[in-house]
Design a protein around this nucleic acid. Structure first.
Length: 215
DNA sequence: GCCAACGTTGGC
DNA sequence: GCCAACGTTGGC
């Protein structure tokens, strides 16, 4: 009875779908985490993209008028949504040097202007030009960030990774750090605990840590 | 400079 | 709406 069989199969898949939906419903509502701290990546070393210099180090930010810049060129939906929905004036962000010899966190910035239209998406000369976007319905936004201060010491990706791995095994504030769980995001969210923990690292002597690791 | 990881695109 | 192909990121 092919008809019945077909029906049985479709019933089954329907049930499976329902079960899946139910599971989703029952799952403890992963309360959408509210993030109040950030990590923003920038490339400190010279690289040419479509004839345009991409380098923008933490020192470059300090040289900007009012030590402030617009964070243009973000072309990733997750990153955009964080900027659009959660980033607020007054919040702190780590300044992270990526795609360079020594990747890691060099300093702290403050968000001084909330999401507004990123003009570079309309500029055909800009490496981040997006022909699929329109002025009537812009796709991409940016925020303004201001230099606050350098960290007392450079906190390398390597060091953070070691701690992350340790916390993943034994538990700890950096066990879910976006730098490793969502490595490619250029604007990453941090919880208060993650931010505090990393900030406190600047007080430690990295040599002492090294000694501890060796012993 | 290589390439793994992962986000995006487009054919079906 | 799936998923292969493609493009980009970014550590190494």
């Amino acid at each position: 009875m092919p008809h019945g069989k077909r029906k049985a199969k479709s019933e089954k898949s329907k049930l499976a779908k329902l079960a899946k939906l139910q599971k989703k419903k029952d799952a403890p509502k992963a309360a959408p985490k509210i993030f109040t701290k950030w990590l923003m990546k920038s490339e400190p070393e010279s690289r040419i993209e479509n004839g345009v210099e991409m380098k923008f180090s933490f020192d470059d930010l300090k040289k900007e008028p009012n030590e402030t810049t617009c964070w243009d060129g973000v072309r990733n939906y997750q990153a955009r949504n964080f900027m659009r929905d959660q980033m607020k004036v007054g919040q702190s962000a780590f300044y992270y040097h990526s795609n360079c010899k020594e990747p890691g966190i060099v300093g702290i910035t403050e968000i001084v202007k909330e999401g507004y239209v990123d003009h570079t998406q309309f500029d055909s000369e800009d490496p981040h030009f997006d022909k699929s976007s329109s002025k009537e319905d812009p796709k991409w936004i940016m925020v303004d960030v201001k230099y606050v201060r350098k960290l007392k010491r450079f906190i390398s990706l390597k060091e953070l990774k070691q701690i992350h791995l340790e916390h993943k095994t034994n538990g700890g504030p950096l066990e879910k750090l976006s730098l490793f769980t969502r490595a490619r995001l250029s604007v990453q969210p941090l919880t208060e605990d993650e931010f505090k923990f990393i900030l406190q690292l600047e007080e430690e002597d990295p040599d002492e840590e090294l000694k501890e690791e060796k012993s």
